[in-house]
Nucleic acid binder design. Structure first.
Lengths: 387, 387
DNA sequence: CATCTTTTGACGGGTACTCGACAAAAGTCG
DNA sequence: CGACTTTTGTCGAGTACCCGTCAAAAGATG
């Protein structure tokens, strides 16, 4: 029960180490560490990383985790698009593909796309299917993570309680992990920007508004898997905007893309949809900029509560509205730093996504990698190797 | 590395089991579990629980966890009161004491009280000091749990970064765990009412309003240890009530005890303080009842966001205002079930505290018990026994 | 080029753990 | 009351694991 410890240490340090260093850090004997390292090298998870400088005798060989040992497939399924990518164990994308695909087409159509694209991506990355170690999938709706099924999804007809892992495993006999799309985006940003952050909130603001919550280092899904549903919190600014949920003044009915577009239309501006809005903001349209900034303030109003409540160290803002430059996040900061308690905001960072449209696939890959490199999985693999 | 597994199984099942059952459940040989059980019995953690019915041969002896093996001390320090109790390992209180004590007196005075009372309680429970296994303490302010120090506490002059565990361990050389008072109350209610709930929010509403968050089975303290600070979230109802934090319309400035009392005073009602308010509500004063119910609605307004955000399975309402009967929680339910999403409220329970003023000491004890019965601690103890 | 230093992989011994067997203990059944 | 059944504790054997030792390898040093 200790091979995984050596690997975990090597992974945490995130830099090449010698066997002697590993022995000192773990407290194990040099010979024991050597045996463990041998197993990890035969698994391919660890490789020599050249020699370190000699201190008078034989130079010690450096060891490092080998991201190229295996690959994972990350899949990000949105309402009207799909994206898939092959990543190595460091989370680096090796091949990627995107398509306009309606999730409403149902599991058979969508998962067939996933299967064909997965094969194509593996070929593109020049990796055999046997190199594929796990698959992570993000779905646009509430998901029961433990079973991999969508539960009462509002925009995914035909997916309710559908056994996604079973379907995918018919083509690829590897672990398949499913989660909500916003949750995996949170994971993606965590791994890309703040790999050590234990309390991070990711906000996706585009057609809808949702949050992914990482608290205590763990993704929080809530009792029914609907945690992070901030879109239907009522904003402070009095509003009679009717939301599709039936209530009035919901954040989503005030600050989401369609709501902003509608407001600009009412003011005589020809703004068709969210993408159009983003274009106009980028083009420097003053009215559009002001509308987006106000939406940022409205979101900041809700985020101020979130910050007081869960006290994160980082808030990452993503989604289409975050790609309008700094206007949106400026509105958010404006309100959060005013409304939240100084203790909670003292070390708080509010930043925009750095991975943009890739946060979903990156997070799905990260989720799969986390599974593959978990201590349990490594123990399992080392046992299978010796037997 | 497996003695703890046997104990954990016995604890999870929470009912007497035979050695044969343990062997079947763990997959170990009968002789191995017998050895493990022997260790646990010599540690006192497990005791025979009479014989089961014979099936034709020698009747198997039943084994059960022994709550009387050791005791822990739970301490709940409030702004103007202190409470301490000795509990057995099941969390049952064996002896208890309460005093009016200002936390502002400083660590020396307060911890001296803790020490003398602890000795008195041990005597009362007829337990030697050697039976004391751990101490849990709740402090009324932000706490850095890992170091056991209060950080920038607003109402605890002299406690800032004071090393509480070191002080207490001079008198009692056992593990000392410190946490925020609302956090331990959340733990207390979880153990008393919903021991299996993994996502629970506890609300303390009295002079201030705070929340303890249990998400994913773990207490969430946030990045700076200030998670759960819901008192300074702005309520939806327009209000110009000035809060001591400098903002206006804070929940605490609208719905906490002093705020309600002030509002009633302004209406010509002689309500001195929170305790007085509670008395009047219990006496059936209509104005007081209405004011408390409105405060419940205001709190419900904030709780609706919390429920949407973290999606708990239970919300427990405690503190002085919760002891006014159902009026307060009725106001909460009224708004939460209206404002939160059906998916989140479908299986949500909103209940009042069942432990009342004891939730703090119970939670502090539960925290200490959790430490004593943790797998690591049991392994440690069994190792020390054999050596 | 020889010697010295340091790392590496292999080997053997010791320890701790786990398992199955066996005899004694404790009831049941005829 | 004796035979049978089932559990319990003890004991010896097998095994896996971990450590220290040692020769070989690889480079530094003079």
């Amino acid at each position: 029960m200790k091979t995984s410890d050596v690997f975990a240490l090597l992974q945490r340090e995130n830099k090449p180490m010698t066997r002697a260093q590993l022995a000192a850090s773990t407290g194990l004997a040099r010979s024991t560490v050597a045996a463990r390292v041998d197993v990890l090298m035969r698994l391919g998870l660890v490789t020599p990383y050249g020699d370190a400088r000699s201190t008078g005798g034989r130079p010690p060989s450096l060891l490092a985790v080998n991201p190229a040992a295996r690959v994972v497939l990350g899949v990000d399924l949105g309402a009207t698009h799909a994206r898939a990518a092959i990543a190595d164990l460091s989370g680096e994308l090796l091949a990627e593909e995107r398509a306009d695909l309606e999730i409403a087409e149902g599991p058979d159509v969508v998962l067939a796309w996933v299967e064909t694209v997965a094969h194509r991506l593996l070929e593109q990355a020049q990796r055999p299917i046997t190199d594929l170690a796990a698959i992570g999938v993000g779905l646009p709706g509430p998901v029961e993570h433990s079973t991999g099924r969508a539960i009462n999804p509002p925009i995914m007809p035909g997916w309710d309680r559908y056994d996604v892992p079973a379907h995918v495993q018919q083509a690829f006999p590897v672990p398949v992990l499913i989660d909500n799309d916003v949750n995996i985006m949170a994971l993606g940003e965590q791994h890309a920007q703040f790999p050590t952050a234990r309390d991070l909130v990711f906000i996706k603001a585009s057609t809808g508004i949702g949050a992914g919550i990482i608290a205590g280092g763990e993704l929080q899904r809530g009792a029914q898997g609907t945690a992070g549903d901030v879109g239907h919190i009522r904003v402070g600014r009095p509003s009679d905007a009717l939301c599709r949920c039936g209530n009035i003044g919901c954040l989503e009915a005030v600050a989401a893309g369609p709501a902003i577009a509608r407001a600009l239309q009412a003011a005589g501006k020809p703004v068709r949809d969210t993408a159009d809005l983003v274009r106009q903001v980028r083009a420097g349209d003053v009215d559009a900029i002001q509308a987006v900034r106000q939406a940022g303030r409205d979101l900041g109003d809700v985020l101020a509560m979130v910050v007081n409540f869960i006290n994160p160290s980082v808030v990452v803002v993503g989604g289409a509205l975050a790609s309008t430059g700094e206007h949106f996040v400026a509105g958010i900061r404006e309100v959060v730093y005013q409304r939240s308690l100084p203790l909670a905001t003292e070390h708080l960072r509010i930043v925009t996504s750095v991975t943009g449209e890739r946060s979903g696939v990156l997070g799905a890959a990260a989720m799969a990698i986390g599974h593959v490199l978990s201590p349990e999985a490594i123990e399992q693999a080392s046992l299978e190797l010796t037997s």
